[in-house]
Structure formats: C-alpha cells, structure tokens
Amino acid sequence: MSTKARGLYISLPIADRMRSMLFYRDAFGFELVGEPTEEDGVPEPLMFRIDQRTLLALIPADGLGWVLGDSRAPAPAGTSECLMGVAAATEQEAADLVERIRGSGGEVLAEPGHRPWGYTALCADPDGHAWQINLEP
C-alpha cells in the first residue's frame, strides 16, 4: 500500500527576509501565508502558497544550517542546487514575468527566447536561486 504525499514544501536559504518577501510577492505574485510580525512586518515563518499542495519556505541561511544540523552544510551563497521552474501561457506572459523579476531585484541570466528545447528564460532571485520560465507544454 502506498502513501500519497499530502503537500510539498520547498525551502530556500535567504539573506534578507524583507527583500525576499517583497521579491516573491511582487515578481511572481505568490500568496503570502501568515500574519506579519510586529518585529519586521514579515510573517514567521516566511512562506508563500504556490498552489493547493505546495509551499515555498524562505529561511535565513543560518536557520537552514540549524535545521540541517551536523548532517550537512547549506550550499555556499550563489550556488544553486536545483533549478525551479514556472510556466507561462504565452511568450508575452513570459516576457512580462522576466520584467517583474528584473524590477523586483532579481537577475536575468538568459533573456526570453527560443532554444532547441523550447521558449525559455532563466532568472535568479536576490539570493541567487535560479528560476526557469518556460511555456506551458
């Protein structure tokens, strides 16, 4: 008998909670989870709902190191261990998303364009985590 996962959490190390909250809210339009704290106005934990079963958790790098414990160290800043992706419906929607990423403090690593595998762009959040924008299959 197999057990189905109830949800998926993606956790990324970050340097600045406010900067990351604003980036993911403004660039991707992800839904913020939780109430802002009195301390810095950012929910704790800092999470975004991606869809019904997926949450993106943004954890200060030293906090992620604490969670990982002695088993392994977080990747050095600027190192991406995975490539996350988001789908756009049209080339214009992909281009608009790239501009929101740029305008929200992200870096465009590869402008939108046709590649042998399809229409795509490559961007990074302010902490260097890579995101690929593709057209929906």
Rank of each mutant, 00 (worst) to 15 (best):
V33K: 02
P126I: 05
D26P: 06
P36R: 12
A77H: 11
E39L: 12
G41V: 13
T54C: 12
M1R: 11
F28C: 04
R102L: 07
L64M: 15
P74T: 13
E93P: 00
A77P: 14
G78I: 12
D51C: 08
Y9H: 10
D16R: 10
N134H: 13
F23K: 06
G34Q: 08
A95Q: 14
V86F: 05
V98H: 00
G105V: 10
D16P: 07
G85D: 07
L122H: 09
T120Q: 08
R72Q: 10
E81P: 04
H129M: 05
P60C: 07
V108K: 04
A15Y: 04
D125I: 08
A57N: 05
I10L: 08
R102M: 04
H114I: 08
V42Y: 01
P126S: 01
D70K: 13
T90R: 03
M1A: 13
E44S: 13
I14S: 00
P76W: 09
E31R: 11
F48W: 02
T54F: 06
A121N: 05
T54S: 14
P36V: 11
P74A: 05
Q52E: 15
Y119F: 13
D70N: 09
A94N: 08
C123Q: 03
V86R: 06
C82Q: 13
E93S: 10
I133F: 03
E93C: 03
P112T: 12
R53D: 14
S80Y: 07
L97S: 03
P126N: 02
P74D: 08
G78K: 09
L12P: 02
Y24V: 07
K4S: 12
Q52H: 10
R53K: 08
L83A: 04
F30C: 02
Q92Y: 00
S11H: 03
R17S: 08
T54N: 07
R25M: 02
L46F: 05
E81K: 10
E99T: 15
L64E: 09
T79W: 00
D40W: 07
L22I: 09
P60H: 06
E44M: 11
E35M: 10
P116D: 06
A124T: 13
G105F: 06
P45C: 03
R100M: 05
P76C: 03
D125M: 06
A130T: 15
Q52T: 15
G41A: 11
G105Q: 06
E38W: 04
V42I: 15
E107C: 03
A94C: 14
I101Q: 00
A77W: 03
I101N: 00
D16M: 06
R49F: 00
M21A: 03
A130M: 13
A73I: 07
